[in-house]
């Protein structure tokens, strides 16, 4: 990372911290029973759940900390938390 004079951090440099390595449990988006309510996306504290198309959501594992809010709040129980093996 290049640092500028005046110690100004560019917008979004926190992306260098790949917080996905913190994860103990990994959310699996089955994309089968999804009704497209969008609760997983709205309640993700990191903002790393994205919509690919209608009724199809996915998560960015580079940053997902594995809190499991998406799986807990999912209205059709389509997200499963599994133990992460590294």
């Amino acid at each position: 990372m290049r640092l500028d004079l005046g110690a100004i951090a560019k917008a979004g440099t926190s992306k260098a911290n790949q917080t996905g390595s913190w994860r103990n449990y990994k959310p699996i988006f089955h994309q089968v029973k999804c009704i497209g309510c969008g609760l997983c996306k709205i309640y993700c504290p990191e903002g790393c759940v994205t919509m690919i198309e209608k009724k199809k959501y996915t998560v960015d594992y580079t940053y997902c900390k594995g809190c499991g809010i998406c799986a807990e709040e999912c209205s059709s129980s389509d997200i499963e938390m599994i133990v992460e093996e590294k």
Binding site: A11, G12, S14, K15, A16, N17, Q18, T19, W22, R23, Y43, C44, P45, E46, G47, C48, D60, T62, Y63, K65, G66, C67, G68, I69
Partner: peptide, 14 residues
């Protein structure tokens, strides 16, 4: 943007 040091499941960050 993601990559913050806030705890997993932080209600404040949300």
């Amino acid at each position: 943007f993601p990559g913050t040091p806030a705890c997993a499941g932080c209600g404040g960050l949300l």
